[in-house]
Amino acid sequence: MTDDVWLPIAADEIDGLPDPSATGSRKGLNYLYWNGGPDYPGDPADCVFYAVPYMKPSGIVVPPLAAMTSVCVVQTLSAGIDHVQPGLGSLRPGVQLCNARGVHEASTAELTLALILASLRGIPGFVRGQDKEEWRGGFYPALADKSVLIVGYGSIGAAIEDRLAPFECARVARVARSGRATARGEVRALTDLPALLPEADVVIVSTPLTEQTKGLVNASFLARMRDGALLVNVARGPVVDTKALLAEVESGRITAALDVTDPEPLPPGHPLWHAPGVLISPHVGGSTSAFMPRAKRLLAGQLTRFAAGEPVRNVVLTTG
């Protein structure tokens, strides 16, 4: 039996991985490349560290978990863990599930600001106008002086606020599962949303997908949003009730910018494609040139700690 490590990036492309032959708390790591192909790189029972292939569906990344009887760490390269959760019940107790905190903050926050600015300043209309050789001048909304509400104030939510700072927003409010104090100000609990939604011009959703957040942005949530407000979803598609959102945008009462949708990918002919006031990007919040160097640094750091018997980081749950 070997201490296999399944990596979705070839080991020789990752600087800083521990030497496979080095002695320590483990007898040596055997790096195997697997990025979701039809053939496994080795016996799943020998895998002690499983780095989950990025942007692959549950149907691909979950099946090997049931046979990973020796696994100690399951490491996603995504901020969310919802795609691996269906397989966690098959794991032995004590397996640590880690997310990719530190990998996606810069890219996702960058896209969030791009979606807000594009939506407010009318960029999609300008592009359509350019295609038709039409000069579409006039006054458009600015981000300056707007009140912004961030729903889901983890590391990505904080990174979004970092990038909002230069835009002279009138106010930034923060909401998370539970309230707390931060250096930037108070983070309110989800239970405070009904009072906060009517005060926001821009509502950014960056919460993880859980049983508690699925359908969080429902008809009641949307009805409490201010007339003319912009909803931005960079979380997961099922956090938003698509039917309820369509009713609001089709009425023209609010607008939306969506990097994620439900269903996803959005199929041809779906009404969201042509709904008024809706800007859609194809779930590209984290998939930029910034992803690979940060993902490699995360894997090298986690495996260095793992090989040395030190605690790994970004643990979001332990099976049991």
Rank of each mutant, 00 (worst) to 15 (best):
L117C: 09
L117H: 14
L117T: 15
A118I: 09
A118R: 06
S119R: 14
S119T: 11
L120P: 03
L120H: 11
L120S: 11
L120R: 13
L120G: 09
R121A: 08
R121I: 01
R121G: 13
G122R: 07
G122F: 11
I123M: 13
I123D: 08
I123N: 02
I123E: 07
I123L: 15
I123P: 15
P124Q: 13
G125P: 00
G125K: 12
F126E: 06
F126L: 11
F126S: 10
F126D: 13
V127A: 13
V127Q: 14
V127L: 15
V127S: 14
R128I: 01
R128C: 06
G129H: 12
Q130I: 10
Q130V: 05
D131P: 00
D131S: 06
D131A: 12
D131Y: 09
D131T: 03
K132D: 11
K132S: 07
K132I: 00
K132W: 14
K132Y: 14
E133T: 05
E133L: 10
E133S: 03
E134C: 05
E134H: 14
E134T: 04
E134N: 06
W135Y: 15
W135V: 02
W135Q: 05
W135I: 04
R136W: 12
G137N: 12
G137T: 08
G137P: 04
G138S: 04
G138I: 01
F139C: 05
F139N: 10
F139T: 05
F139L: 11
F139M: 09
F139Y: 13
F139A: 10
Y140Q: 03
Y140W: 08
Y140R: 09
Y140D: 02
P141M: 02
P141Q: 04
A142Q: 11
A142K: 04
L143E: 07
L143W: 12
A144L: 05
A144G: 05
D145V: 01
D145S: 13
D145M: 05
K146E: 02
K146C: 01
K146Q: 08
K146S: 00
S147N: 12
S147H: 10
S147F: 12
S147I: 05
S147E: 08
V148A: 06
